[in-house]
Design a protein around this nucleic acid. Sequence first.
DNA 1: CTACTGACTCAAT
DNA 2: GATTGAGCCAGTA
Length: 106
Amino acid sequence: MSDFEKRVLDLVRRIPRGRVTTYGHLARAAGSPSAARMVGYILNRQKFNPAIPAHRVVNRRGELTGRWHFETPDLMRRLLENEGVPVQDNRIPDFMQYLWIPPMPE
DNA sequence: CTACTGACTCAAT
DNA sequence: GATTGAGCCAGTA
């Protein structure tokens, strides 16, 4: 498991309940600004790890692009709504309001 | 070894 | 706005 992967997973674990962040922000904070695709890939391998709240990671427009990788396509939406994050048409309306920006390394 | 594929993003058009 | 092309890099065939 690469350092990048470990950093990404560590950051995902820190996303507060009821907040979301994006693949791009995670990639940047983990030290590889253009590796947004890798973030989704990493989450896919960890999707059975209950310690990783992967449903709190959306793309930069607030779309639930990862929903097809959950057990059922509506699970991601249900988990978010359970935390108070509204989802409409596979997207979080006014999603900037819920955005959590991961801490950047020095 | 090469080729293709993504839970993505950005800049240019 | 929409579309296109490129960068990213681990995994798979």
